[in-house]
Write a protein that binds this DNA or RNA. Structure first.
Lengths: 182, 182
DNA sequence: ACCTGAACACCGTTCAAGT
DNA sequence: ACCTGAACACCGTTCAAGT
C-alpha cells in the first residue's frame, strides 16, 4: 500500500481524535503507517502542513449554515468530535483565514442581517465558539488525565446562553430593528 | 543567589514574553538561571504548574473592571504584552476556573445588568476575547517566522465591533430594557 | 521517485549521589 | 534541604544511501 498524502492525513486525524494534540506526533503517524519517520517528509513539508490538513478534515462535513445560532451549534458539535480541535482550528485559521469548511459561508448568513460588517459579525461568533470550546476541551483533557474531577456539569446551557446573546447583539442597531429572533 | 519558585516563574515569564510558548522550556529556564534542569523540580512540580504561575503573572496587574467594554479592552491589552498568552490563559482557566487576575471580578460588573446569569455573561465576553486574541497572536507568530506577510491591518476595529455587539446582546431582554449604554 | 537508517539538536522528568 | 550528573524515553527534521 503506497504511502500518500491522504493516508498520512487520515492517520493524523485518527491519532488526534484518539490521543489528542499531545499524541499527534510525526513519529507516531509514521509508526501507524509502518514507515520510517523521514518518509513522511516526502509527501508533507512539515508538521504544520499536516496540522492544517487535519483541521480541514475536522470541518469538512459541516452543513452549510442557514442561521447563525444553528451554525454555532454545528461548529461546536463538529469540534467536540475531535480532541483539542478548537486549539488546532484557531491555529490554522491564522494562516488559512476563514477558508475552513462551511464556516467559510457564515458571512453570507450575516449579510442579510447587516451587509456592512458581515465578515466581522461572523468572526465574532466564531471567535466565541473557539474560545468556549478550547476551554471546554482543555478541561476534558485534564479530567482524562485525572488532574481534575469530572464535575458532571453540561456546558451546553452556558454555550447556548452565549450564542443567543451574541446573535442578538449582532442584529442591526436598536434604532431600526425588525424581527430580532425567529 | 538562591533558586526560588519566584525566580523560576520570573524567568519563565521573561522567556514567554521574548520567545513565545515554543521558547518556554524547562531546560531553557534552567539555563537562564544557571542551574541544572533537574533543580527546577525541587521548587515546581512540573511544567504545567509553572505555566499556571506564569499565566497568573500575565493577568496580575489588570485594573479592577468597572464596565464590561473597558474590561474587555484591558484584558486584550494585557494579553498582547506577552506572546502566546491567550492560549496559555485558556489552558490555565481550565483548571483554575476564573481565578485569574481582575478577570475574576467581571461577574460583579454584570451582576447589576443581570443578576441571574452574571457568571455566564462574563464568561461569554472572556471567551470571545480569548478566541479573538489567540488567533491574533497565532498570526503574529507566523508573521515573525516569515511564513505569513504582515498585512498591516489593525485588528483593533474588528475587536471593538465584537465587544460592542456582545455587550449589547448581554443586556437584559428587549422587553424591559433601560439605559442600554452609558 | 520513493523510502530507510542514522544522525542532529532538542524535549520533560527522574533519581542516585553529592554537599 | 538543595542541587548536580547522568540517564530515560521521547521529539521534528535532514540527508546520504539504497531501490
Amino acid at each position: 500500500m503506497a504511502l500518500t498524502r491522504a493516508r498520512i492525513v487520515d492517520a493524523g486525524h485518527a491519532l488526534l481524535r484518539e490521543q489528542g494534540l499531545a499524541g499527534l506526533t510525526m513519529r507516531r503517524v509514521a509508526q501507524e503507517l509502518g514507515v520510517a519517520p523521514g518518509a513522511l517528509y516526502y509527501h508533507v513539508a512539515n508538521k504544520q502542513e499536516l496540522l492544517a490538513e487535519v483541521a480541514g478534515r475536522i470541518l469538512a462535513d459541516l452543513p452549510a449554515p442557514a442561521e447563525p445560532r444553528a451554525a454555532a451549534q454545528e461548529l461546536r458539535k463538529a469540534l467536540l468530535r475531535v480532541r483539542d480541535s478548537a486549539e488546532l482550528v484557531s491555529f490554522v485559521r491564522a494562516f488559512r483565514p476563514a477558508a475552513l469548511g462551511a464556516e467559510r459561508d457564515l458571512p453570507l448568513v450575516f449579510r442579510e442581517l447587516r451587509a456592512d460588517r458581515a465578515r466581522w459579525a461572523a468572526d465574532t461568533l466564531v471567535h466565541f465558539v473557539l474560545g468556549f470550546v478550547a476551554e471546554e476541551q482543555n478541561r476534558a483533557e485534564l479530567v482524562r488525565l485525572g488532574i481534575l474531577p469530572d464535575d458532571g456539569v453540561d456546558p451546553g446551557a452556558a454555550f447556548g446562553y452565549g450564542v443567543d446573546a451574541i446573535v442578538a447583539g449582532l442584529q442591526p442597531p436598536p434604532a431600526r430593528r425588525r424581527e430580532a429572533s425567529r
